[in-house]
Each structure stands twice: as structure tokens, then as C-alpha cells.
Design a protein around this nucleic acid. Structure first.
Lengths: 197, 197
DNA sequence: AGCAGACCTGACCAACCAGTCAAGGTCGTT
DNA sequence: AACGACCTTGACTGGTTGGTCAGGTCTGCT
């Protein structure tokens, strides 16, 4: 049974942990930092989570659901170009709404995905293989331009996540302008031109 | 005056440091790890470099030259589409030849570019602003499709660096296949379609 | 060979870090 | 009010980490 206090504190801890892990990476983050952000004492963190590792694990588990939802939502019965454009837009929306999650994921993969390799090689690979096959069928039907489906998916990931992961760089170059201003229009025309048969 | 031994050992240390920093991030890397990879003792590392920070600094300084060269090489007098396609291909080649440098850079920017903000807001911004102006002229001349030049540059960065930075993920999804196999052809047709007026 | 300066290292230190624990405080229930 | 379960923390520990230092070894030059 979970109490009201448990729910509130677990949430506070995971939110603080996301803040710190996404900005410093796993090894760079310290429990003292997380405790400071959460407004709790370090031993109290360890009352709710067995270890630093466990906090990170909990975040990754939450993350994957959010992260894969847009690709899962792609509809095999829908209009091919519309489905892919919709996927791209939803993924871009994730970068806007969940930039810390994007950076947490990027940190993890950048370091060789030591804690995510099972999920990536399992669930994610299966999902991507399935969508790649779907895209190939759409291409065979003449509804899409002939593009490599894997590189198409990777390009959507690269372009959308870039705005969250490299936010610091974009801000320094664009100044006060919102980093994502104009991004959706640009990506719309990029993929629209790419996908036309 | 620098001796033969100095040149050899500085090189060994920087190469080992690049290996470890790019895989673990600055805080995640330890001098013991770097010493192990370099085949030197930890105090010996600190005989050649004042601090861990100094090794990282030296790597970032080397990195920036390599990293900005392709954008510098863009020729205002050249053929617009050819220049941009050439830039993209050279950038992709960097991901192939210098994946560790790409990940070092990604780690740094991901964590808010604490040690690179001056260079990014200075040299890099100036260069990007200059190239953006050039691209705008090309568009005004009707030689390129009307795209936002900043997003065009960001998209080239995102797409090319993705293959180095997210190599672990791509490998897990594509299996034995070379992660970059087919990438150049895909990116060629993507940018070719985007840039046609 | 012998010397000066460059190169190298074992042993050490202070700071930091994840995690423990015993003791005390708080909350919901009766 | 009183009880037990839940919650919180100061003080601590063992291990790690960046960096120091005194003294030793090697190298190139005369």
C-alpha cells in the first residue's frame, strides 16, 4: 500500500533526479545534488529508493513509455504520408514538452546504452522492424517515395531530438529567439518533399 | 622546447583521454581510467598536464578546428546546391572518421556547454551567421528552395552527428549491418529534394 | 664517463561520494 | 490520548578520486 506522503515524495525525488541526471549524466550526478533539488535529505532519498541506480532505473522505465508512444501510434491503415508526418510532429512535440527526458536518453545512448541495451535490442527493435516493414509496403504500393525506412526513422529521431539535446548550442547561436521557432515548418517541408512518390 | 618523449606521451595521453571522456563524459571519466588506456601512471599524466580539466581543454581546442573546417570550406562562389551537399557529405565523413570527437562534443553540449559557450557564442555563431546570410542570398537569387538557413544548418548537424552520437542505438537496431551503410544515399536524396527551387 | 635536466613513480592526502544506522519525530487510527 | 507504523535525519563509514611530493631513473650531451 502506498501512502499520500510516499506518492508525493517519490514524485519529488524522481523529478529532481531527472533534472540532475539529464544535466550531468549518471556518474556526474550526486545524491547531494538531487537531495538539494528535491528539498529532502540524502538519507531520506535512500528511504524511498534503494540506491542511486534504482532512481535512474525508475526514470528510464517511465521514459520508454513516453518515448515509444508516437511510433506505436502510427496507424497501418492510415494515409502513409500523413502517418509519417504525424509521427514526426508528435516526436517534435516530445522534444518541446519533455526536453529533460530527451537528454536523459541521449546521455544514456551516448555512453553506449549500458542500462538500456536490453530494451533497445528488444521492444524498440521489434517496433522499428515492424514499422520499417510497413513503410516498405507503402513504398511498394507506390504511396511513398522509395527511401530506406530505417534511415527515414533515424532521420526523424535525429532531427526532432536535436532541438532538445543540443538546445544549449542552438540558444547560443540563435540568441533570444525560441530555439524551436520555425522548426515545425522546416521539418514539414523537408519530409513532405522527401516522401512524395 | 619540446622533446621527442614529450610529443609521444602528450599524444598518448590525449588519445586515451579522448577515448575515456567521449565514452563517459567529463565527470564520469577518471584519471585512473585514462592512465590505464594510455599505459602511463597517473602521476605521469599530471606531469604532462596540470589537471584533468587541462586535458579536456586541450581536446576541445583540437576538436573545434576539425569540427568547423567543413563549414569554413563552403565556397560563396560555388554552386549553391553543390556547396550545401558537399558540406553535408564532409560533415558525414567527420562522423565516420572522428566518432569520438563527435561524442565528446555531444557530451559537452548536452550538459549545457559549460566549457564551450564562449567558442560557440563567438567563432561558431559568427561563422553560422555568415553562412546563413550566404544561403539567404542564394535563395533570393532563386538558386535554392526557400528554407530557413539556420534550420537547414541545424538539420545537417543533427542528421550527420546522429550516426556517431547514437551509434550504440543504431547498432542494436540494425544488428550486424554497418550503422552508416546507406546513410549517404539517403541524405543525398533528402537534401537534394529539399533544396531544389 | 659523468653530469644536468628531463622523466617517472610509490606513497600519500584531503575532499567527495554512496550508502548505513540508531534514534527521534510525525501521522492515521482507535 | 495512546499506540504502532511510517517518516526523517545527524553522524558516520569505507571506498574512490584528483592531485602532491620526495626521491629515484633515464637520456642526451660534452
Amino acid at each position: 500500500m502506498t501512502t499520500r506522503i510516499q506518492r508525493r515524495n517519490r514524485r519529488k525525488i524522481l523529478d529532481a533526479a531527472l533534472e540532475v541526471f539529464s544535466a550531468q549524466g549518471f556518474r556526474g550526478a550526486t545524491l547531494d545534488q538531487i537531495a538539494g533539488v528535491a528539498g529532502l535529505s540524502k538519507p531520506n532519498l535512500l528511504y524511498y529508493f534503494d540506491s542511486k541506480e534504482a532512481m535512474h532505473r525508475a526514470l528510464l522505465d517511465e521514459l520508454l513509455d513516453i518515448w515509444l508512444a508516437p511510433l506505436r501510434a502510427m496507424n497501418p491503415q492510415g494515409d502513409p504520408r500523413g502517418e509519417i508526418m504525424g509521427y514526426m510532429r508528435r516526436k517534435l512535440q516530445l522534444s518541446r514538452d519533455y526536453p529533460r527526458e530527451s537528454r536523459l536518453f541521449a546521455n544514456e545512448v551516448l555512453q553506449g546504452a549500458p542500462r538500456l541495451s536490453d530494451e533497445i535490442a528488444g521492444d524498440l527493435k521489434d517496433l522499428v522492424d515492424d514499422r520499417a516493414a510497413l513503410i516498405r509496403r507503402w513504398i511498394a504500393d507506390g504511396q511513398l517515395a522509395a527511401v530506406d525506412p530505417y534511415h527515414l526513422i533515424f532521420s526523424i529521431w535525429a532531427l526532432t531530438q536535436h532541438y532538445a539535446d543540443f538546445d544549449a548550442q542552438i540558444r547560443l547561436i540563435r540568441g533570444d529567439k525560441d530555439p524551436m521557432d520555425g522548426a515545425e515548418g522546416f521539418l514539414d517541408s523537408l519530409f513532405d518533399r522527401l516522401l512524395h512518390p
